[in-house]
Amino acid sequence: MSGMKPKHQRLVLLVIAVAALIGAGLLAAWALRNQASYFYVPSDIVAEPPAPDKAVRLGGMVQVGSIKTADDGVTVHFVVSDGKVTVPVVYAGIVPDLFVEGSGVVAEGKMGTDGTFVASNLLAKHDENYMPRELDDMTDAQARATVSETSE
């Protein structure tokens, strides 16, 4: 380094420092990969069931055709899927506007002993697709085809 101009020395030093910083950041992100996730997907819940009294969040897609409102009008049963496994969920309360079948949901609650997830709060998860309302006139299958076309 002694033959280099001072500004080149500083450049080399800074590049090494930035590389070390990025390495440290990546390591930290890697170490946090489980803890920093906002929710568990059904596969996580089935692989490692949480203790019955532990509050967890379960996230995934509301399976099409699975929403059933009980006779009392406020209790809903539905199934959350991650494409591999499914977990049945029960929730009593007002559901968010975006809570629809085939859309994302995050349920906060506890795993019941009978394998049903008892949710105390529901959050709707919007996906990355933005569609004008005119597409509402299409059938569901057409809308889905349009969505997958534009997202590819």
Partner: peptide, 19 residues
Amino acid sequence: WWNSLHQPPSITMGKSAID
């Protein structure tokens, strides 16, 4: 990297999921 309530990016390299 992490499951989040915020949706994944809509605009990525040359692709857009936004109408």
